[in-house]
Design a protein around this nucleic acid. Structure first.
Lengths: 125, 125
DNA sequence: CTTGACCTTGACACCGGCGTCAACGCTTAC
DNA sequence: GTAAGCGTTGACGCCGGTGTCAAGGTCAAG
C-alpha cells in the first residue's frame, strides 16, 4: 500500500509517516515511480509507535520497540532494550510526579502566604 | 543602575531582562544615551518574576503579580488577579499530576504485558 | 488532452525562554 | 588615539512532532 492508505489505516498523517522514516524508524520500499510502498508489517510498526507516543514516549524512546518488532518478536516490548526504556520512562515519570508535587506545595505555600485564607485546605494530610 | 548591575544583583542575564521588558513586564527608564536605567523597585520585580518562574509559571502567568507590585502592594500575590492565577496553576498542576499518574499506570501495564515478571511490584496499593 | 487525486522533496511555522552572535554606539582610562 | 568594557537593536538557534505551503512528478478516469 502507499502512504495515503497507511496513513488512513493508522490514523496518522502522511507527514508523520515521512517524519518517522526520516528518523529511521520505518523504512519504506520504493516503487519504480518513487512512491513509498508499505506492507502489513508496517501497519503494526506504526501502531506500536502511536501507542508509545500516546503514553508520552519520544520517537527515540520508540526506536528499540520498533527494532524489536522488526527482529520478529511478537511484542515490541519484549526485548531487553525495550524493557530498559520502560524502566527509564517509569523512573522519569516518577521524577516528574515528585517534581510536580513539590511545585504544587510551593505554589500552595506562596498562595497561603500572599493571601491567608484564600487557600481552601482540603486533604493536606 | 544599568542593566548589567541589575542582572548581577538579580542573578539573571541581561538578555532575560530585555526579554521581560519586550513582554511588557518591566519598563526601564532610558538615560540620555539610550541606556536602560533601573531602580530598587525593579530588583523586587525581577525577584518576583524569578520566584514564579522557579515554580513553573510562565511570563504571562507572572504578569498580574508584577502589576500588583507596581500598584504598590507589598506582596505580588495579594491582588485578586494573582490569586486567580494561583488557583489556575494549582488546578493545572493537579491535572498534570493526574495525567502523569495515568500515564505511569499505562506504561506499567504495557511493561507487565510485554514482559511479565519484569515489573517489580512495590507499593501498588 | 486534461483534470484531479495522489505522490515527491524542501522548507518555514509553532511554542517559551532565553543563549549567542553580529554590528554598532558610549564612556573611561591610558 | 585607542582599546576595553559596558550598552544598544536585530536576528538566528534550540527542542519535538508535526501542520502547512510550494513546486513539481505520476497515474487513472473522462
Amino acid at each position: 500500500m502507499r502512504i495515503g492508505e497507511l496513513a488512513q489505516r493508522s490514523g496518522v498523517s502522511p507527514r508523520a509517516l515521512r517524519y518517522y522514516e526520516q528518523n529511521g524508524l520505518i523504512r519504506a520500499r520504493r516503487s519504480t515511480n518513487g512512491y513509498r510502498e508499505y506492507d502489513e508489517a508496517d501497519v503494526r510498526l506504526v501502531a506500536e509507535i502511536r501507542s508509545l507516543i500516546a503514553v508520552g514516549f519520544t520517537l527515540e524512546d520508540a526506536r528499540p520497540f520498533v527494532e524489536c518488532l522488526k527482529a520478529g518478536h511478537e511484542s515490541g516490548g519484549s526485548c531487553p532494550e525495550s524493557v530498559a526504556v520502560y524502566r527509564r520512562k517509569l523512573a522519569d515519570i516518577d521524577a516528574d510526579i515528585r517534581s510536580l508535587l513539590a511545585r504544587r506545595s510551593e505554589v500552595a505555600a506562596q498562595l497561603a502566604q500572599a493571601c491567608p485564607g484564600c487557600l481552601i485546605t482540603r486533604g493536606e494530610s
